[in-house]
Amino acid sequence: MVNIIALVSGLIFGLGLILAGMANPAKVLAFLDIAGAWDPSLALVMTGAIVVGSLAFAVARKCNRSYLGLPMNLSTSRVIDKRLVLGSLAFGIGWGMAGICPGPALVLLGSGSVKGTVFVAAMLLGMGIFEILERTRSINFRKRGQS
């Protein structure tokens, strides 16, 4: 059941991105181009999503368990660190270069876009590099702890 919900959620998410125009990189770049022919319509997408999303999280906050009985332990980290800020700053540069963020990238992949596919492949490579760096870091951390 968990997997069916995930599949349906992913599908609705993707249809929402297409309907909103978020899956069109030219439109995303027009939204980010405030000094040019600015297209503010994507702000409406964020607003629409946040209005519905905040209702959902308001309900979720009051539940100990999800409707499928899973523990509702959502992240409560409040740490503002260098990783959060520098990582997000870097993400914005990539987003501004291509007009593509991870969700729309996967929708572009599904629509058969070759450039979208190149973006997804590079994104997965980047995530893989992060994973390797993280594991190396935790191994070194443990080594230091033992000595």
């Binding site: 993400f91 914005g92 190149v118 590079a122 994104m123």
Partner: peptide, 8 residues
């Protein structure tokens, strides 16, 4: 851009 988005 994909690489930077992935790592970032």
């Amino acid at each position: 851009a994909g690489l930077v988005v992935g790592i970032g």
